[in-house]
Design a protein around this nucleic acid. Structure first.
Lengths: 199, 199
DNA sequence: GTTTTCCCATGACAAATGTCCTGGTTCCAC
DNA sequence: GTGGAACCAGGACATTTGTCATGGGAAAAC
């Protein structure tokens, strides 16, 4: 019996996946949560063989929990809406055993779970190619911070205050990020970075 | 037997919903599509009693299809990830019989379908309140266009070219939109408008 | 037939943004 | 211990953005 836990914030999707997986003879859903913060605690409690993690979760990204779950002997299958190369890269670097996009048919899911438990690694081939061509993030830590803060339309002064920096420094980081992403302003830069999973 | 069609772009969600609804004794899933353009054609073919429509679909928003389905005698239940007041408003004004957010448990879905078929209207109370307090969109048609074009970080010159306007006109529309939304720049204005479902 | 609203457009101005330069610090790698 | 990279900061400058005043045309409302 394969013990599975599910971390997914959309209630309807979470329930549906749990019900469907529960119908498989060799799979048992032992825990569910919609909260990123709760993942590790729930896993410690339920001791699953494998965890199904969404990337975008309230509280804490599923990606942040991968390494720790791995250390606890739990295999991780990352499940996401967005096919972002940087997500795949981070998931794999943290030791995830598989990366699945929610676009595919449900049958893929149970199959992927079985293959992961059997020791295989699962990756969408098209996405893997994209991750390789896009390369790793060219951004430095601070550039990342500044872009993330710029994403919602904050002015330079706001960003500076939020990060405890001078306005000059913020503008320098922004300019560098715009240059590296070959975009024309902070917004394009921030959105490109987000879409590549660099934030 | 209630004949249901599903328009939803996430394959896994679509399959899962179809399977779950198919397990109900009185519900039969007669058609599925992941393409907004295809909704009307599929509905004509399958002649469902009720259509489950996602808002964000490739090709065409589910909201655009509501009025026409309604005219064809098909009840519409709008199902969306995002609880945006403007979506609810538009759905209801186009004649949708219900509006459900994907956050809730799956049991809600079958129940909502039965109630809609019985002639009731289904609305999330919290969301209805938000829609009422937020009021209708204050934006004029052109302001809407300009904000939508600004959403991805385009410069004034780009927007002007895209909409065949002068740069001055674009700046005037943007300024008006910023004023109406009580935001501080085009980005905040565009994001607020998007989050309210005004685009 | 007048008022209102929306649309388009200009010009002028202040403010914010993006670029480039300089120069300082720390930390790591070779 | 030297070079490189990341970090912080300031100043100067051109460009872009946002605001405001003004005015004309079209359509709908009264």
């Amino acid at each position: 019996m394969i013990r599975v836990m599910i971390a997914e914030d959309q209630g309807m999707m979470r329930d549906a996946l749990a019900l469907l997986l529960g119908m498989e003879d060799d799979i048992e859903v032992v825990a569910q949560t919609g909260d990123g913060e709760a993942i590790l605690g729930v896993a410690r409690e339920a001791r699953p063989d494998i965890a199904l993690l969404d990337v975008e979760l309230p509280g804490r990204s599923g990606l942040d929990a991968v390494a720790e779950l791995r250390r606890g002997g739990v295999a991780v299958l990352v499940l996401t809406t967005f096919a972002r190369p940087g997500y795949l890269r981070r998931a794999m670097e943290s030791g995830a055993a598989g990366f699945l996009v929610k676009d595919g048919p449900v049958e893929e899911l149970a199959a992927a779970i079985r293959r992961v438990v059997a020791g295989e690694r699962i990756v969408d081939p098209a996405l893997a190619a994209a991750a390789l061509t896009a390369g790793p993030s060219p951004l430095t830590g601070r550039e990342r911070d500044v872009l993330a803060a710029a994403l919602d339309g904050a002015a330079v002064a706001d960003i500076a205050a939020r990060l405890h920096l001078s306005e000059s420094t913020v503008r320098n980081h922004l300019s560098a990020a715009i240059g590296k992403t070959r975009t024309r302003n902070r917004i394009e830069a921030a959105q490109l970075a987000r879409d590549n999973g660099w934030l």
